[in-house]
Lab assay of single mutants.
Amino acid sequence: QTTIQVRVPYRVVGLVVGPKGATIKRIQQRTHTYIVTPGRDKEPVFAVTGMPENVDRAREEIEAHITL
């Protein structure tokens, strides 16, 4: 297991999390990772935990939302 920090712009935190957390839950299920969402007043950084290859996939999925 490994944990990485995925930093995103403030404006996309809501996009990545999705309505009621649906998007981030879907990313967690698809990539078999555990993702901690940043709090409102915190740095916009997601903490992604899982097997290294799964963590990389989750990071790619999160980063895909940044380019939307």
Rank of each mutant, 00 (worst) to 15 (best):
F46V: 03
P44V: 01
G39H: 09
R26L: 09
G21T: 07
A58T: 09
V6L: 05
L68I: 07
N54W: 01
T3I: 06
Y34F: 10
A58R: 03
D56M: 15
Y34L: 14
T67V: 11
P52S: 10
L15A: 13
K20D: 10
T31Y: 03
R26F: 00
I62Y: 02
T33P: 03
T67L: 11
R57V: 01
E60S: 11
Q29G: 08
V48G: 01
H32K: 14
T2N: 07
E63A: 03
E43A: 12
G39F: 06
T67P: 14
T49H: 09
I4H: 02
K42R: 12
H32M: 09
P38N: 01
K20G: 14
Q1I: 15
K42D: 14
A22V: 05
D41A: 07
V12Y: 14
Q5Y: 15
V48Q: 00
L68A: 14
M51D: 09
K42N: 13
R40T: 12
D41W: 08
I35L: 05
A64K: 13
T2S: 06
P38Y: 01
V45E: 08
D41V: 03
D56N: 15
D56A: 15
A22S: 12
P19N: 10
Y34E: 14
G14I: 07
F46Y: 01
H32P: 02
E60G: 09
V36G: 03
Q29H: 12
Q1H: 13
I66Y: 10
Y10Q: 15
E53D: 13
R30G: 06
V8P: 00
P9Y: 01
D41Q: 03
T33C: 03
R26E: 12
T23L: 01
P9V: 06
R57H: 12
P19A: 10
L68D: 15
R40S: 11
I4Y: 05
I24Y: 03
K42P: 00
T31Q: 01
T67N: 15
L15G: 07
Q1K: 13
L15F: 12
I4A: 06
F46C: 13
V8K: 04
P19Q: 11
T31K: 01
L68R: 14
Y10F: 11
I24E: 03
T23Q: 03
P19K: 14
V12T: 15
A64P: 07
P19R: 15
K42L: 02
L15W: 14
T49L: 02
V45C: 12
T67M: 11
E63D: 03
R7E: 06
T2H: 10
P44Y: 05
I27D: 10
V55F: 02
T33H: 02
I4F: 06
Y10R: 15
E43G: 07
P9S: 06
I66H: 01
P9I: 02
P44I: 01
P38R: 06
P38F: 02
Y10P: 15
L15P: 07
K20E: 09
Q1N: 13
D41L: 05
K25F: 03
I24L: 08
V45P: 03
V13I: 14
G39S: 12
G21V: 01
H32T: 10
V45I: 14
N54A: 11
G21M: 09
P19S: 09
E53F: 05
L68T: 15
P44S: 09
T2W: 10
R59H: 00
H32C: 10
N54M: 09
Y34M: 14
T37D: 04
V17C: 11
G14E: 12
R40K: 13
P38A: 02
Y10T: 14
P19F: 08
A22K: 13
L15R: 14
V45G: 05
P52M: 00
P38C: 07
P52L: 04
T23W: 05
T37Q: 14
P19L: 08
T31E: 05
M51L: 14
E63P: 02
V36A: 12
T37R: 08
K42Y: 01
K20R: 11
R11T: 13
T2I: 15
Y10C: 12
P19T: 10
F46N: 06
H32D: 13
V13N: 07
V12G: 12
F46Q: 06
P9D: 02
G39K: 13
K20S: 09
T23N: 15
A22D: 11
P38D: 11
G39R: 13
I4G: 04
D56R: 15
T23P: 01
V36P: 03
K42G: 11
Q28G: 08
V45D: 00
A22Q: 11
R11D: 15
R11V: 09
R11W: 12
T33Q: 04
R57G: 05
Q28V: 00
I4C: 11
R11G: 15
Y10L: 13
R59A: 04
K25Y: 05
R40A: 11
L15T: 13
H65T: 14
L15V: 04
P52C: 11
I66L: 10
P9K: 00
T3C: 02
N54V: 04
T49C: 08
P19M: 11
V36C: 08
V8M: 05
E53R: 10
V16L: 10
G14R: 09
Q5I: 07
K20A: 12
D41T: 10
V48E: 06
T33F: 03
R40M: 12
G14V: 02
P44M: 00
G14N: 05
R26S: 14
E63L: 14
R57L: 07
R7F: 10
P44Q: 02
V36E: 12
T33S: 05
G50P: 10
R26C: 00
R11Y: 11
Y34D: 11
Q5C: 11
G21I: 07
Q29D: 05
H32E: 10
V13T: 08
Q1E: 14
I62D: 06
P38G: 05
